[in-house]
C-alpha cells in the first residue's frame, strides 16, 4: 500500500523485551505491517545496516555513553525520524540500567547508561517494563492516523498521543516515589489501585487505601505513575473509550 508509514525499531541497551512485546500483538502486528506500516529498520527483523529515513522510530533501551556507536546511532535516529518514540522503561527512564556501574564482561568499561531523552528530544513515551503490547499497538495505530488519516482521525490521534508526549516532556527520571511526590503529596490519590496493578515487580501494595512502595524493589520503569488516573486523565479522550476501542479493533481486523 502506497500510503503506509515507515517504522523502524532502534535497539539501544535493552533486553529485547520491548521488541518481544511488540511481537506479542501476534496477528495484530501482521495486520499493522500489512496495512499501515513498513518496517524499514530493525536489527533482528530487517536486513538494513544503517539507520534510514523513517516516519516513526521506536527506540528500545537506554544509551551507553561509553559506546560510540550507540551515541552516534541515537543522534542519527533523531535526524532521520519524524517522530521518536521511547518504548519501554529503559528508553524513557533508564529502568534497571539505572543500577549499572560497569564491570560486566566483556565490556567492563561500559558503565554509564542514559535514558534516550537525556541525549535527544523524544516525542512520545511508552513507559513500563516490559511495555504493554496493546499500548504499543495503540500508539502505532494513532501514529498512522496522525500521519495518514483524515482530519477527524488526525484530531483524535493528536488528542490520544498528547499525554504520552507530555510524559516525554516531563523528564527522564521515574520511580515509585513519583506516586508520593506527584499524587499523594499533591492531595490527589483516591486509592484506586492502578499503580499496584501496573507494577511489574509487585513493589506496590495498598495499605489502608493508599499505595505503599517498596523502594528496594522498584526498578524505575515509570509504569505506576503513567497508569495512575490522577497522573493524567484526559476528558477529551477516555470517556470515548467505547468508540476508540471499537475503531482500533476494526483497524486490526
Amino acid at each position: 500500500m502506497a500510503d503506509k508509514i515507515t517504522v523502524g525499531h532502534v535497539h539501544m541497551s535493552g533486553c529485547t523485551g520491548c521488541l518481544v512485546s511488540l511481537a506479542d500483538n501476534y496477528g495484530g502486528l501482521l495486520t499493522i505491517l500489512d496495512k499501515y506500516a513498513d518496517l524499514v529498520y530493525g536489527l533482528t527483523l530487517a536486513d538494513v545496516r544503517h539507520i534510514p529515513k523513517m516516519d516513526v522510530a521506536l527506540v528500545e533501551g537506554s544509551v551507553c555513553i561509553q559506546d560510540k556507536i550507540s551515541v552516534q546511532e541515537i543522534k542519527e535516529t533523531r535526524e532521520k525520524a519524524a517522530i521518536v518514540v521511547a518504548v519501554g522503561g529503559c528508553a524513557c527512564y533508564g529502568n534497571i540500567t539505572r543500577f549499572t556501574r560497569g564491570g560486566q564482561q566483556n565490556q567492563p568499561q561500559h558503565e554509564s547508561y542514559l535514558p534516550v531523552g537525556d541525549l535527544i528530544k523524544v516525542d512520545v513515551y511508552i513507559p513500563g517494563c516490559a511495555p504493554c503490547p496493546q499500548l504499543i499497538r495503540n500508539v502505532c495505530v494513532m501514529a498512522y492516523l496522525l500521519l495518514k488519516g483524515n482530519k477527524d482521525q488526525q484530531e483524535l490521534a493528536k488528542k490520544y498521543l498528547t499525554p504520552l508526549m507530555q510524559l516525554a516532556d516531563r523528564g527522564t527520571e521515574a520511580c515509585g516515589c513519583d506516586l508520593m511526590y506527584d499524587v499523594v503529596n499533591q492531595g490527589l490519590c483516591m486509592g484506586c489501585g492502578s499503580c499496584a496493578a501496573a507494577c511489574p515487580v509487585r513493589a506496590i501494595t495498598h495499605e489502608y487505601g493508599k499505595p505503599n512502595v517498596n523502594r528496594e524493589m522498584c526498578i524505575k520503569c515509570g509504569a505506576c505513575y503513567a497508569q495512575c488516573p490522577r497522573a493524567f486523565f484526559n476528558f477529551d479522550v477516555i470517556p470515548e473509550f467505547e468508540g476508540i476501542m471499537d475503531a482500533i479493533d476494526a483497524a486490526l481486523k
Binding site: 504493554c132 496493546q134 495503540n138 484506586c192 489501585g193 492502578s194 501496573a198 509504569a223 497508569q227 488516573p229
Partner: peptide, 25 residues
C-alpha cells in the same frame, strides 16, 4: 465493581494500558 474514579481508572487502563498487559480486552 467500583466507584466512579475506579471506573475512570479501568477505562484509562483499557485505552492507555501502560502496565496492564493483556487486560484491555
Amino acid at each position: 465493581v467500583g466507584t466512579p474514579c475506579q471506573m475512570q481508572a479501568v477505562r484509562k487502563g483499557q485505552l492507555y494500558p501502560v502496565g496492564l498487559r493483556d487486560v484491555p480486552d
